[in-house]
Design a binder for these strands. Structure first.
Lengths: 208, 208
DNA sequence: GAGAACTATATCGAATCGATATAGCGATGC
DNA sequence: GCATCGCTATATCGATTCGATATAGTTCTC
C-alpha cells in the first residue's frame, strides 16, 4: 500500500521522507493519513530492494522550492556544507530507479488488495495504466461495492437503535454514491477508449 | 479500536469469536472488515486483562439461535459433550465482565483516536454515552472534518491529472456530506436534550 | 463414502500505528 | 543576549493489525 503511494509520488521527481508524508496527507487526504513510523521503514525497504536510491550531492532545491520554505532549504544546505556528513542530520532525498518503476507498475496492476484506500490510490495513479486496466479496476471496484451492499445489514434491521441505524444508513448512502461515481467514471472511460480507437461500425469477429 | 468493538458487541450478550467477526462485518460493514488474526489475539488480551471471561458450561443456544444455525449449535454441544474438553476444538464463548463494562465506557469516552472508523464505531454505540458526551463526539468530529477540508488540495489544483482530480473531488464531496449528516445528528441531539430537560422559558442563571 | 463447503480457533511474519527521542533552525519575546 | 517555542527532519520502539496459512470437525452433495 505505502510502497505504491511512495513510488507513485517519486515518479514525479526525487523527494525526501518528510515532504512525501506531507504530500500524501494533502493529495490523498484521509485516505493516506500515514505516520513517520510507516514512511521511513517503507523508504528503507524500498532502498534495500533497489526500487529507490538516495540522491547524494543532488540539489533538492531545484525540485520543490515553491516560495516560503526557501529559507529552510538554504539553511539545510548551508548546514550540510558546514558540517559535511558528520553528525549533522539533514535530508535524505530518494529517487526512483528503473527497477522501482517496474515494481510500481506491478503494484498498480496487482489486484489483491481491495479496500477503499488501495482502490483510491490506484485510481489516482491511473494515468500510468493501460486503458483496459483502468476499466478493469473501476469495474472490479464497482462489483465489490454492489456485493458489499447485499451483505450488510440494512437500515430496517429492527435490532438497531437510532445511532447504529444512522451509521448503517449513512454508510450505505456513501456506498451508493461511490457506485454512482464509478458509473460516471466507467462511462467516461468507455467514451475515451471508443474515441481513440473507433472500431469498425460492422461487427468484428472476436476470438473469445 | 477492536477492543471497543468487541466489548460493544459483547454488551448485548455472550458470543464467540467467529460470530463476533461476522457481526462486525455485517453491522459495521467496510468500517470493521477485520481479520481473525486480529479477533483472536484481541479476545485473549481482553481475557487476560479481565474484561471478558469464557463461558464454560453455558448454553450458547439460548443467545443466538435465530433459525438456521440451530443444527450447528446442537452439533457443537453434542460434540463437546461427547469429547469433553479433551482434544476437540469447539466454541469458546466470551462474556463481558463488570470490569469489562467499565473499560468499554472508558474506551468509548476516550477521544484520542480520531479516524473515521473509530468515530463511526463510537457513534454506533452512542446509546451507552451520556447525552453531553454524544454531542461532544459529534461536534469534535465535525470540527475535524472542517479542518480537514481546509488542509487538503482542492480539485482546482493544476498539478493533478483527471484521475487524481476525480479522486480528490469525490473525497471532498464525501467529507461535505459527512458534515451535513453530522449537522442533522447534532440538531436532533439538541432537540432531544431540550425535550427531555425543558429549561425555564426565562433565562436561567448559569455558573459558567 | 469421497470431496466440497462451512464453521471454528489459532499462529506466524510483516506492515502499520502512535508515541517518543533527537537535533538544527528561525522567530518571538522580555 | 538568550530562553523558549515551533517547525523541519529522521529514526526507533512496542503494540496492534493484517493476510496467509494450518488444523479440525460438521454438513451437504453427488
Amino acid at each position: 500500500m505505502l510502497d505504491l503511494a511512495l513510488l507513485g509520488l517519486l515518479e514525479e521527481g526525487p523527494e525526501h521522507g518528510y515532504e512525501l508524508r506531507k504530500r500524501l496527507r494533502t493529495q490523498f487526504g484521509l485516505l493516506a493519513n500515514v505516520s513517520f513510523g510507516s514512511i521511513y521503514p517503507a523508504l528503507s525497504r524500498l532502498e534495500t530492494n533497489g526500487s529507490v536510491e538516495t540522491v547524494e550531492g543532488g540539489s533538492p532545491v531545484a525540485l520543490a522550492p515553491p516560495t516560503g520554505s526557501l529559507s529552510g532549504e538554504w539553511a539545510a544546505m548551508r548546514a550540510r556544507r558546514r558540517a559535511g556528513t558528520r553528525g549533522r542530520r539533514s535530508r535524505k532525498v530518494y529517487r526512483i530507479t528503473t527497477a522501482g518503476r517496474e515494481f510500481f507498475l506491478t503494484l498498480l496492476s496487482d489486484s489483491t488488495a481491495d479496500d477503499a484506500r488501495s482502490f483510491s490510490l490506484r485510481l489516482a495513479f491511473a494515468r500510468h495504466m493501460p486503458p483496459e486496466a483502468r476499466l478493469a479496476l473501476l469495474e472490479r471496484r464497482r462489483a465489490q461495492l454492489v456485493q458489499h451492499l447485499t451483505e450488510v445489514v440494512t437500515a430496517d434491521d429492527p435490532e438497531l437503535d437510532i445511532y447504529a441505524r444512522s451509521v448503517a444508513e449513512h454508510t450505505a448512502e456513501g456506498v451508493e454514491q461511490d457506485i454512482a461515481w464509478l458509473d460516471r467514471l466507467i462511462k467516461a472511460e468507455r467514451a475515451a477508449t471508443d474515441a481513440s480507437a473507433p472500431p469498425n461500425r460492422r461487427k468484428t469477429r472476436r476470438s473469445a
